[in-house]
């Protein structure tokens, strides 16, 4: 799998594709993500059957998601970047394709407040929270997040140094 094959398969759904030392890197839009993932998962030339990793970061202007997927049969790595606006951070969930990414999606919601459309717990913030307490307020990895000590060490943000 390399950038050429991906361009051939995905066509205009790709924003950019390049071969990097340890992976092939592509950039897609949030709207296309699910169709791209479904395609790459089932296409015999890519066969991305292994759930790798999802993470995201807030640059202050937008939120950039980073997906890493592997193919066990072909032995290649694909990384995907998806950029979404900060005030409407919504991407389709891919946990139906790779159930292992379920918890990574939950973690991304937990830390950055990204809504994963199609995730089984998407409408239930308490079940969606994974590392932080269920009643935590705010998303700590957002750049505008200000930790406020709530007074109760069990609920909400705590005093930080």
């Amino acid at each position: 799998m390399n950038a050429e094959i991906l361009t051939e398969i995905l066509g205009d759904r790709l924003i950019s594709a390049e071969d990097q030392p340890f992976s092939t890197h592509i950039v897609v839009t949030a709207d296309n993500l699910l169709s791209v993932c479904t395609e790459l998962h089932s296409n015999p030339r890519t066969q991305l059957d292994y759930a790798g990793d999802i993470t995201a970061r807030d640059t202050g202007k937008e939120i950039i998601l980073w997906y890493r997927l592997e193919s066990m049969t072909i032995g290649t790595t694909l990384t995907i970047n998806v950029t979404v606006p900060r005030d409407e951070a919504v991407v389709p969930s891919v946990q139906a394709i790779w159930p292992g990414l379920n918890w990574f999606e939950r973690e991304c919601y937990d830390m950055l407040g990204i809504r994963f459309e199609g995730h089984p717990d998407v409408d239930n913030p308490e079940l969606m929270r994974i590392l932080l307490p269920e009643d935590w307020e705010g998303f700590p990895f957002r750049k505008d997040y200000v930790p406020v000590f709530s007074g109760n060490p069990l609920h909400g943000p705590q005093e930080t140094n």
């Binding site: 059957d49 292994y50 759930a51 790798g52 990793d53 066990m72 790779w98 159930p99 292992g100 990414l101």
Partner: peptide
């Protein structure tokens, strides 16, 4: 093996 891959084991 399929489950292991799909779950990222």
């Amino acid at each position: 093996p399929e489950m292991a891959a799909a779950y990222g084991a």
